[in-house]
């Protein structure tokens, strides 16, 4: 784990969220979904941390916990030296102006009956008391910053394409000059050609303003382009975190390796020559995660120890990995898993 420095904007430790599953006549808690189960990570000023994982990994829950849109079961979220979870309502409201969020679906995150001026202007009215021409002036600046035009000011969301709507959401999120922007699958609903536009926009805003991004996505190839560092999640835990290029080219955890091998490369020659790792079976339920290492039931290198003892994040190259392969068996000692011979052949499709 990176030690917090003056450079650290966000420090998350032991972050946990268990959702109760109720049932029966009395709606008693029958079980708990362990959506996020003890996360530690930091985000530095001006840095992008990518959070990658598949459905059910807990990545979106993590984003919501950081902004305290939902209350964690346990853990600490320290933002610019302030323990966010201890703030009262008023102080939390002020704090929110410094941490903003954009979502996957730009269609449902804009009020269909509000003009662009109203949507982007609302945070300016609420937090800075701006009205009328003064407010609209600021909105026009924001529109231009995200590549839209002043004449878009009085239009409604339905008049825009998906990519343009995401730009409106970005403008709204930037209105109060936040220090942190949590991006939850911001380009997943967009076409490839538009996806690239939005990613470049986010990067150029970051260059200009020094904003930090927590970029949540299922797509490791997209995340690589925006992130300085990447955290890979599986069933509520971080299995590997580290330098973006290292994660992409020299993974230190078998799950990261699997994710990378599953992304189809847009080149038939390369794609058909690649060795693909097909995972065994389906992801286990977060209601009852496997014992020991949560990935052991599907891992092609699983050893006996993996079913018994839960591995902890330990330094590996320019990052950390939670995997027994580094200490037991082949004893990788922080090296990449790429050269290992599988001990469990995955079942055929």
């Amino acid at each position: 784990m990176t030690e917090p420095t003056s450079d650290t904007l966000l420090e998350v430790s032991g972050l946990t969220k268990h959702f109760p599953v109720r049932g029966g006549v009395l709606q008693r808690t029958k079980a708990r979904v362990r959506a996020v189960d003890g996360l530690d990570f930091t985000v530095r000023r001006g840095e992008t941390l990518g959070l990658v994982g598949e459905s059910g990994s807990g990545k979106s829950t993590t984003g919501r916990l950081v902004l305290r849109l939902i209350e964690p079961t346990a853990g600490r979220v320290v933002f610019d030296g302030v323990d966010v979870l201890k703030l009262g309502r008023g102080a939390m409201r002020d704090m929110r102006s410094r941490m903003q969020m954009i979502f996957q679906d730009p269609y449902s995150s804009l009020d269909p009956q509000a003009t662009v001026a109203d949507s982007i202007g609302e945070p300016l009215s609420v937090h800075e008391g701006l009205r009328g021409a003064k407010r609209d002036g600021r909105v026009v600046e924001l529109l231009e910053r995200v590549g839209l035009k002043p004449q878009h000011l009085h239009r409604y969301p339905y008049e825009f394409s998906g990519g343009q709507r995401q730009r409106i959401c970005i403008a709204r999120a930037l209105a109060l000059k936040p220090d942190l922007l949590v991006c939850d699958e911001p380009v997943s609903a967009l076409d490839v050609s538009i996806q690239a536009q939005v990613i470049n926009l986010l990067k150029s805003i970051q260059r200009d303003t020094g904003i930090s991004l927590l970029f949540i996505s299922h797509d490791l190839s997209v995340v690589r382009h925006v992130s300085d560092r990447i955290a890979v999640m599986y069933l509520g835990r971080i299995v590997e975190i580290g330098d973006s290029e290292q994660i992409y080219t020299q993974p230190r955890h078998p799950y990261t390796e699997t994710l990378l091998s599953a992304i189809p490369v847009p080149n038939p020659v390369t794609q058909r020559r690649r060795e693909r790792i097909l995972l065994r079976g389906e992801p286990p339920s977060p209601l009852d995660p496997p014992s020991g290492c949560r990935f052991h039931t599907r891992c092609q290198y699983a050893m006996d120890v993996c079913a018994v003892e839960e591995p902890v994040l330990a330094p590996a190259g320019r990052g950390s990995s939670a995997c027994h392969l580094h200490d037991y068996g082949p004893g990788l000692g922080g090296g990449t898993v790429l050269d290992l011979e599988p001990t469990h052949r995955p079942v055929p499709a």
Partner: peptide
Amino acid sequence: DVTIQAQILEL
């Protein structure tokens, strides 16, 4: 998910 996609394409 991509890992499931890989299984289905293979199938």
